[in-house]
């Protein structure tokens, strides 16, 4: 294979695997005569997506909006908390066990509480997306700060730099690749959060659409919702990966040009 062919094949790989998967699914459904209510065939799901795209799109946008709102809150909060945890051993030993405990709580359990506090609507979904997605950001930013080379600290100290100067000139730039790496994980979690909240109880978003469709035994629409979520997930993941690539070119270092 030439280099060009290899590159093309690599680009085509995800589509090929997807195609194989869908065709296998379709054939399996046909071969075993699976009823649509249990597992609709992919071709049926596509049909529904094409037929009801306007409704799907509307609910998708609602979900996307709540997810991103929660995600932005998670970035701001996670960054600040991560800096504090990474920079101060006292904050670290004080907050870290609590954070881990909080992260271990299944978020399904808190959605009903959020509904009592915040009512029904966008707000509980935003908050769920937020609480589920800030943890990886905190951990990563704190790791970035805590793993600064001692030589780098010595350098700053020898120049008489203040704690603040060391933080802004070494700590934050050093933590950035860790932050951007965590965003990819975190944004997908944010989707889990908002859809979770919508399915537990809500009146909007793709989760609600799926819930009401399955109540009507409309499995095809439920699966169409799943596809839509996966699609949005890939979209925001790719956006985060792109931002990461742009912002932290130095962390990847120079690769020989090909």
């Amino acid at each position: 294979m030439t280099g060009r062919q290899r590159r093309l094949l690599r680009l085509a790989m995800p589509w090929l695997t997807l195609a194989v998967l869908l065709i296998g699914w379709e054939l399996a459904c046909l071969a075993f005569v699976v009823p649509e209510i249990i597992l609709p065939r992919p071709s049926r799901i596509m049909e529904v997506i094409v037929q009801r795209w306007d409704i799907l799109l509307r609910f998708c946008l609602e979900t996307l909006w709540t997810t991103l709102a929660g995600f932005v809150m998670a970035i701001a909060f996670g960054l600040l908390l991560g800096l504090a945890v990474g920079a101060s051993p006292f904050v670290y030993s004080g907050l870290y066990p609590l954070l881990i405990a909080f992260n271990a709580i299944p978020k399904v359990a808190i959605v009903p509480i959020l509904m009592i506090w915040l009512g029904i609507g966008a707000l509980p979904a935003v908050v769920t997306a937020f609480v589920i997605s800030f943890f990886p950001i905190v951990v990563n930013v704190a790791t970035g700060l805590a793993t600064i080379e001692p030589e780098m600290r010595d350098l700053m100290r020898s120049l008489g730099a203040s704690q603040w100067e060391t933080l802004t000139k070494v700590g934050i730039p050093r933590a950035m690749p860790y932050l951007f790496a965590s965003l990819k994980v975190s944004v997908t979690l944010a989707f889990v959060g908002s859809v979770l909240s919508e399915t537990v109880g809500g009146n909007r978003g793709i989760g609600f659409l799926m819930l009401s469709a399955s109540a009507r035994n409309d499995s095809a629409t439920t699966f169409a919702g799943l596809f839509a979520i996966a699609l949005m997930g890939i979209g925001v993941y790719a956006a985060c990966a792109l931002v990461e690539q742009r912002m932290t070119r130095w962390a990847v270092r120079g690769q020989p040009s090909r």
């Binding site: 080379e149 030589e151 780098m152 010595d154 350098l155 700053m156 020898s158 120049l159 008489g160 730099a161 100067e165 000139k169 070494v170 730039p173 050093r174 950035m176 932290t248 130095w250 962390a251 270092r253």
Partner: peptide
């Protein structure tokens, strides 16, 4: 101080690295 292990910051250009003392 010039430390034994290079402590240049990979996120700064050479010029910005050298100018670090001016910032601090």
């Amino acid at each position: 101080m010039a430390f034994q292990n290079s402590t240049l910051m990979p996120w700064r250009t050479t010029r910005d690295n050298i100018m670090l003392p001016f910032e601090v």
